[in-house]
Nucleic acid binder design. Structure first.
Lengths: 249, 249
DNA sequence: AAACAATAAATGTCTGACAAATGAAAATCG
DNA sequence: CGATTTTCATTTGTCAGACATTTATTGTTT
């Protein structure tokens, strides 16, 4: 765990990198305590604030946790799925919004990934997960639901579908795609007619998953993809028309 | 952009959150300059080092970049696919290594996701991407290749396959799964026999992609999944046997 | 007009200090 | 002797002020 003393640029970044590499390489194991800030400052021959900036960088990546007090210090943190989810979703959301990813691209990616999960989910889903899917479908049929709540329920439904594959790595990867889509999905106004259509497709998916019929689930998901794309294009067209109308006045 | 002055705990984390929320919500746009550190310190009523720690947290997430000099400062950074890739790969790798994800789970996730890309890639791949796949297959056939180089080439091959889908969101999601698998794949020793088998499957995949035959590509990928799983299980068994042998002595 | 030097603004770093939390050891009391 | 309380040392969290470094601008000189 050494840094190059010649290049005195971005010291805190260098120190963060040195420690991060030590963690990633397995040189430091989970729950191991790092040297105290004062010791690190001595080791790297920098001041304590510089060390602290480096540690904050690592804390931002959930690589370490700090604890005050006598036996406190910085500890290598076990990266939990939950933390990784959150991080992944934040990054995905930003990526989509900052790079003006169009609805078609995001939608295609999302459903392509979901269709990868469907066959596994048809085999392995627990009764609980199936019940969640049914419950969300029922919720989506409630009258007077706001578009936002409808979207939330949609995410929950698909989340249960993905989790049914019983593969945490898949769930982790999918979480980013599905949740990051939400801001885009929220631009759609769901009419009573389109909700009916979506609920019907959801029901077909749930039925297929219950029957263990991977082919039927895939077919229903394909239709849902096409239908969502249509809705998205309509929403985009409506938004553009409204914008141009505003510009003209 | 305010913080709760009552809770004086984890000030730098609170400030980082406040600024991050402002960026995510779109309140601050790309390339907009943040107030100077001194001004932020005034605004939040904390000292400059505390503000700096908060900024370092954001810099670690690639949310801002800093620039020294007269017109310098901290600027909202456009999150680029490349940066997001790197971040995603780091997180995925750590997640796999720290949570003892078994080979089967990671392998299943990886190929499930790849199979989601294959149909799109069969439709859209550029001649360039196809050429890359062919070149990597040729490289994999070179004699005297180390296991590590063979693995690198394998990743490059699959990367070309994924990029052929021409969907940056898919590429981004897949990068994490494929690259994070590498440490696990590196535990496999590839015999001449197994390399032949893999190259034959890669060739079948490339042929299918060239012909635009999604079904054939999917079938070949399914076989590759099964074969890789077998190799992985053999490697795990060999490793466990060696470990027990060492323990006994 | 062009080249060069002074300037100002901003980040990067350092020193030294105090506050707050926290576990461990020491002291005290029943 | 045992249990409880107190004290204390260690470590992170924060602050204040200072100086170094980088860099665009501005003014000066040739």
């Amino acid at each position: 765990m050494k840094i190059d003393p010649k290049s005195r640029a971005d010291l805190s970044a260098q120190i963060a990198k040195a420690i991060r590499d030590a963690i990633i390489s397995g040189e430091m194991i989970v729950d191991e305590r790092l040297p105290s800030e004062a010791e690190l400052a001595d080791q790297f021959e920098v001041s304590r604030p510089t060390v602290r900036e480096a540690l904050k960088r690592l804390a931002a990546q959930n690589l370490i946790r700090t604890q005050r007090g006598a036996t406190g210090g910085a500890f290598v943190r076990r990266l939990r799925y939950q933390d990784a989810y959150a991080q992944h979703i934040t990054t995905s959301t930003l990526l989509l919004s900052m790079n003006a990813v169009d609805f078609e691209t995001a939608c295609e990616a999302r459903y392509a990934l979901e269709r990868a999960c469907a066959p596994l989910s048809a085999q392995r889903r627990t009764p609980d997960q199936l019940a969640t899917m049914r419950a969300e479908i029922h919720r989506q049929g409630q009258p007077g639901l706001s578009d936002e709540v409808f979207c939330d329920s949609d995410v929950a439904f698909h989340r249960a579908l993905v989790d049914g594959a019983d593969n945490p790595v898949l769930s982790y990867q999918l979480a980013g795609a599905v949740e990051a889509m939400q801001p885009l999905m929220n631009m759609i106004t769901f009419t009573a007619r389109s909700r009916e259509e979506i609920i019907a497709l959801h029901t077909r998916i749930a039925d297929a998953i219950e029957a263990g019929d991977a082919g039927a689930a895939d077919a229903a998901l394909a239709e849902l993809t096409a239908y969502t794309l249509t809705l998205g294009q309509q929403a985009m067209a409506a938004r553009d028309a409204a914008r141009h109308g505003t510009d003209a006045t």
